[in-house]
């Protein structure tokens, strides 16, 4: 196990290193002189000289990369042109919204996707299964922002049950502010619940073909007990690991949803920074999301192998 874990962590580190080169290069391939890219059009000559000296832009590109990497490892991701503040603190401001939104979305995904996937698997081949699987494919074909706009129209504008936009922090207004995240998390949950539904169904069907399930049936255990104790327990392992990947992907998938609901999260920050040409923030967000994405993947992969002793360790 440990040798596998080390190898897997090593691969992640190498991928991260290669990704960091691409992210570093981002500032240099964006149209315009990097110094203007970093400081914006309103920079004074003094500022330009100071930054050019500070970043060592006259030095070879490899030296620049190493010094950038050094800053990043110390938590210095540069300064936002628009906010005139460190990029890391700008991203941290959006983290609360994004993490809460992703968590609430995963709760919906679990409540909707897993039980319905189970029902489809147990009723495999019937019209109910075909209907549910078809509905899942339909849900995966709907743009999240369209679902979001309809939720706003119905539940915010017509019925007035939930607020249509924004999110005041729960730390200032209390847990009641979570109602601002109900509609966006539902919109974001739709396609992801569909994927988890299909995965739960497929995984349960896989397990139900195993020899030990046939043995359990043959020795006369009641059908629902076979499902509960033999099929479900083994099938859910794959589903739980898919939860990890989905959560990691949600941080970037939320870009559109956060824009529709005007949520102050990381996703909307990216879009606004693109429109404001605030390149240091875009670079910082891409870096943070890629790191989180790779780390969650690593953790999920390792815990999957830890929990399921049958998975071969190479």
């Amino acid at each position: 196990m440990w040798s596998y874990a080390l190898k897997r962590a090593g691969t992640t580190a190498v991928t991260l290193l290669a990704a960091s080169v691409i992210i570093f290069a981002f500032i240099h391939v964006v149209p315009g002189d990097p110094i203007y890219v970093l400081l914006g059009d309103t920079a004074t000559p003094d500022q330009i000289d100071a930054l050019r000296h500070q970043l060592g832009l006259d030095q070879p590109i490899i030296v620049q990369y190493v010094s950038w990497m050094g800053h990043v490892l110390e938590g210095d991701l540069g300064r936002s042109i628009f906010f005139q503040a460190p990029v890391l603190s700008v991203i941290a401001d959006g983290a609360e919204t994004s993490i809460l939104l992703a968590t609430m979305t995963m709760i919906w995904v679990a409540i909707i996707g897993v039980p319905i996937g189970m029902i489809a698997a147990v009723r495999h081949g019937t019209w109910l299964d075909q209907g549910l699987s078809g509905a899942a494919m339909l849900m995966a074909s709907i743009p999240t922002f369209w679902v979001g706009l309809y939720l706003i129209l119905i539940f915010a504008a017509w019925l007035g049950w939930f607020p249509s936009s924004g999110y005041p922090s729960v730390f200032e207004g209390g847990a009641v502010n979570l109602r601002y995240l109900v509609l966006p998390s539902l919109a974001l949950a739709a396609p992801n619940a569909a994927l988890i539904l299909r995965l739960t169904r497929a995984s349960m069907l896989d397990v139900s073909r195993e020899d030990y399930v046939r043995t359990a049936r043959a020795k006369g255990i009641r059908p629902w007990q076979v499902v509960r104790r033999h099929i479900l327990r083994n099938a859910l392992l794959a589903v739980v690991s898919a939860f990890g990947f989905t959560f990691a992907a949600l941080l970037s998938e939320a870009v559109v949803t956060e824009t529709v609901f005007a949520l102050p999260g990381i996703g909307r920050l990216v879009v606004q920074s693109i429109l404001r040409r605030d390149y240091p923030v875009i670079q910082g967000v891409i870096l943070v999301i890629v790191v989180v994405y790779l780390l969650i993947n690593l953790i999920v992969d390792l815990s999957y192998r830890l929990l399921d002793p049958r998975v071969e360790l190479q």
Partner: peptide, 24 residues
Amino acid sequence: MRMVDVLMAFPTLLLALGLIVILA
């Protein structure tokens, strides 16, 4: 395939947004 792995570390929509920033 290692290079493909590195590209896959970028979520699809994020990759698209980053490219749009560079390319307009």
